[in-house]
Each structure stands twice: as C-alpha cells, then as structure tokens.
Amino acid sequence: MSRARTTEQLHTMHEQGFVLLRQILQPQQIKAVRAAIDRLEPVHWDYQGLVDDHYKCVFNRDPFWLQLLDPPGVIELAEACLGRDCHAIGQTAWRSHPGFVGGELHADYLAMELPEQWLQDPAFELPMQVCTAHLYLDRIDADLCPTLVIPGSHRAGRKPRPGETHWQGRDPQPVLCEAGDVLLFRSDLWHAGSRNRTADRSRYLLQVHYGRRMVAQKFSPYLQWHFNPEVIAAATPRQRRLLGEHEASEYD
C-alpha cells in the first residue's frame, strides 16, 4: 500500500473513526478461513451456543492464523494508527447464526473521558489506543448482522449511556460490504452488532484487536497461558512482534 493512501486512511480514522478496506482477502483465502473456523473447538472461555459461536486467541491454535494477524492493506494502517511497535491483543473468530441478536450501542475502550467540547475542534486529533479489524467472510447485507457505526462518535469523549441510541442526532449506520472486505475502527467509536434476520445463513467473522505497545495483551487463560511452539517457529519477525516480542523499553 502506498504511503499516501495510508496517510489518507489515517486521516479518515481521525475524522470518522473507521475505514472500510476493500478486497483484502481473496476468495480462496476466504474459503480456507471459513473452513478453519468450522474446525475450531472451544477452549477456556470459548463457547458454541444456540445462535452464535465464539473462539478467542485463535492465532495460537495453528500457524495458519498468523497470516491474518498482519494482512497487507490492514497492518500498514494499524501501525500508522498505533505506532510501528503496536501488537495484537486478541484474535477472535465468530459464527453468528439465524436468530443472533447482536449487541447494544457501545464503545470498547476509552483511555479516559474528556469533555466533548474539547474534541469538537477539528484541529485536535485524539490519539488512538486500540483498534479492531473485522475481517468479513461473507457478503454483508442488511439482514446478515451488519456492524453498525456512528461516524465521528469517538469525539463524544465518553461511552454511550444506557438506552442511548444516537449521538448528535446521528443514528447508527450499517456497514454493508463484500466478503474479503475489512472494517478497521478505533475502540472509542460508538458501534453495535445487529441481528441475523436471515433464515439460513450464518455470518463468519474474524476480529483482530491491535493495541499500542503499552496496552496489555489479554490472552486467556492468563496465568495458564503459553504460546504454541509451532506458531512461534512459523512467525515472521513482524508477527513475532505482534505476538509480544518487543525491543526493551522503559518497563521491561
């Protein structure tokens, strides 16, 4: 990806809070990732439910998942947002079946609350601490669990209050896209899940969460956590950094 393109996308992350990246995964790769999700079995806090299945830290299951930590066209923007020493704080696979409800309007993480009037100055750019990439493995239409976002809502300076459904008169809008597209959004953006209103389709989704170097990596089961040696052996230098192999710094 060109530096100019990344710079333009970074500006959009500051202005809108999200960027939709087109055609990041190709059809054969999409097929392979869907099949790999179908082979997953629950570990620790993972679950297979009536209307959705959820698997955490899938990068540690098999070297196959490493390619999805730093896909070209995504990792360049993640590093521009969070620094070239950013790392992964999670990689989660989902299947959302017919009847899946989704979630309420929320923001994932704020480093601190700030007065909204401070954030309305267009010259002020609030640094990002965490970003999430949604790798869509299906064509997402209005019925198949589109992610809902409120553009610019990261400038609210807070999370939505209980029952709050819009910000500054702006309602959540669905992100409709093709299989292989990736939505990258900042953790302070107001967003929501939505229902699977189809009769016979499940949405397959892979999330990759990126954090600044000083944001803790959250790998369950925590004190019992250990890296899969096969994964570490197969990882590139960038992937090893994303997994936590950093140069020494202030608190090491």
Results as ranks from 00 to 15, higher is better:
P71N: 08
D108N: 13
D62E: 15
E113W: 11
F124L: 15
G193Y: 06
R240F: 05
D85C: 06
L82P: 03
A35P: 06
I140H: 11
P174A: 02
L25N: 03
M214V: 13
Q168P: 07
Y204C: 06
D143L: 10
L243G: 03
T165E: 15
D200T: 13
F100Q: 05
L205D: 07
L105P: 11
H209D: 10
Q48N: 08
R22S: 09
Q129H: 15
S96T: 10
I24M: 01
E76H: 06
Q91K: 00
Y251E: 13
S220L: 07
Y251S: 09
V175P: 05
K31Q: 15
L10M: 01
R95Y: 01
A4Y: 09
C145N: 11
F100A: 09
D252G: 08
C177S: 03
A80T: 08
A192D: 09
E247D: 15
S202A: 12
A156K: 05
Q207V: 02
G180V: 00
I30K: 05
A199G: 12
E79P: 04
T236S: 14
K218P: 03
P172G: 02
D85E: 15
G17T: 03
G169P: 10
Y55Q: 07
K31P: 00
H209G: 08
Q67I: 01
P229V: 02
F185H: 10
G163V: 12
A36Q: 08
G193D: 00
G244D: 08
G163K: 09
V208A: 08
A234R: 04
E230L: 08
P122I: 09
L144Y: 09
R203G: 01
G49R: 07
H97K: 13
V215P: 06
V33S: 09
R186H: 05
V19T: 05
L68P: 02
T92I: 10
L10T: 00
I140M: 07
L206W: 00
D200L: 09
V43A: 01
A36R: 06
P174W: 07
H209M: 13
A80Y: 11
S220N: 06
H44P: 05
F100K: 07
H14D: 15
H14P: 03
T132Y: 02
R158S: 10
W167I: 07
R155Q: 15
V130E: 09
E41C: 08
P146T: 03
G73D: 05
W94R: 14
S153P: 08
Y109Q: 06
R186W: 00
G163Y: 00
L68G: 06
I89L: 05
A111I: 14
L148F: 02
C57G: 13
E250R: 11
W225S: 11
H106Y: 07
L126G: 02
R238V: 10
G83C: 14
G169Q: 06
Q67M: 13
Q129G: 12
E113A: 14
T236I: 01
S194R: 01
L137A: 02
Q16M: 04
A233V: 01
L189T: 14
Q224W: 13
H209C: 04
Y55T: 13
Q117P: 01
H154A: 04
T6H: 04
A88L: 08
I140G: 12
P71V: 00
L21C: 04
R84P: 03
P237C: 06
E104G: 14
E8N: 12
A88H: 08
G157S: 04
M128H: 13
T165A: 14
Y109G: 02
